[in-house]
Design a binder for these strands. Structure first.
Lengths: 209, 209
DNA sequence: AGTAAGGGTGACCAGGTGGTCACCATGTCT
DNA sequence: AGACATGGTGACCACCTGGTCACCCTTACT
């Protein structure tokens, strides 16, 4: 029998990588529905049947790619959670670590962004839920620490604080990955580090006089 | 001759509305590429040829819908710019006004969100640019006023401040339109007004002790 | 009554899609 | 040499897409 996921994993690693890279690029460029298996196999120079042997169908291919990515997503955060240091410097670390992750996996992040507001990705709810929960748990732990040590303003609502942190992190990453070309709505600071610093300062003090 | 945009505008208003509503819903549900003209005309109970008589092609239909929407988008902001009151209450007003706009045009906002990270919408750059510029101009004016009256922390970078305001407004609206179901990452306050208030307080004071 | 114009129609077209499957090539056992 | 398993192939299928166009129907004007 030749039609299992095993078939793909038996392949030489080099070939596995080529297939996954090209498929990931296709999903990043076109989302799920508009991604074309014909284009993928044309670029790879293999037969269409092979892809269906490896992954069963289009959804199987996507799930294979993205479930691995979700697992990787959670990595960089854990490293920081176990770090010492005050609340705001840990936040700044998070900005930087997440930015580095996105620099390392730009295609995956583009898929994630497309999935955010586009309903018809396979397993969308599961994937987004996993990512959100990981983030919420991570940020929630940071906030709890900071509340305990008195680093946060008293009277802050925990949920709201987590939401705000998540917002800033999200937007920092979006802006890092997809700078909005022309309009004067992008922040001036050039480097990742400068922007992370500016965001952190804002989180600390707000805008008021 | 029967093939101009005029043809559509000659139609009874009631029919124009039905067509635009159904087409808008299709784009909101499926984005641009996956939107199906066949489905639209099936739901409307009219012939496919009619749509092409009215708008020339699929892109023409989309442009007709979204260019009207962009014009409407700019409305609610202007009203506030001419308002008196301190900086932060004007910001809070902006949250509320934008939220109201989205409640009134939920389908349009869903299209906007899809367009944000999906490249293949016709005239995407132009539309997004217009919206961004309108926002940047509006927020920039608010910031300039606040700097002049000393309501903002000294030393704030203007661009960065506009960016941060835009971020918060954007995210406030996203959360209002598409609350992220399960995970504990949504803010606790229930009503639009409560959330606007909480966001504003955060903008004023930040999170630091 | 004749005619021109405009809205409306739906069978039809070329092209692309995900998916199938009978078949082929190669290597490894007995 | 034969049998079996495994990976690989691409013509083929049903289906859907945006778009076309020759034709119809109704109204209005002469």
């Amino acid at each position: 029998m030749a039609g299992t996921r095993q078939t793909f994993e038996n392949l030489p690693e080099e070939k596995q990588d080529r297939v996954l890279t090209e498929a990931t690029r296709e999903f990043a460029d076109h989302g799920y529905q508009d991604a074309s298996i014909n284009r993928i196999v044309d670029r790879l120079g293999i037969a269409k049947g092979s892809v269906f042997k490896y992954f069963g169908n289009k959804a199987g291919l996507f799930e294979h790619i993205f479930s691995r990515a979700v697992a990787d997503f959670k990595g960089p955060l854990k490293a920081i959670r176990d770090t010492d240091g005050d609340f705001f410097s840990r936040i700044e670390q998070s900005f930087l670590a997440s930015g580095a992750f996105i620099d390392a996996h730009p295609l995956i992040y583009r898929i994630y962004l497309k999935m955010l507001f586009n309903e018809n990705f396979p397993l969308r709810e599961r994937f987004l839920g996993e990512i959100r929960r990981a983030h919420a748990k991570y940020l929630g732990a940071l906030v709890d620490d900071a509340v305990a040590s008195g680093e946060l303003r008293p009277g802050l609502d925990r949920e709201m604080t987590v939401f705000l942190l998540h917002t800033m992190l999200d937007r920092f990453l979006q802006n890092h990955a997809v700078p909005s070309q022309d309009a004067g709505i992008d922040p001036a600071p050039r480097t990742l580090a400068e922007r992370a610093r500016a965001m952190t300062e804002f989180l600390r003090h707000g805008l008021g006089a």
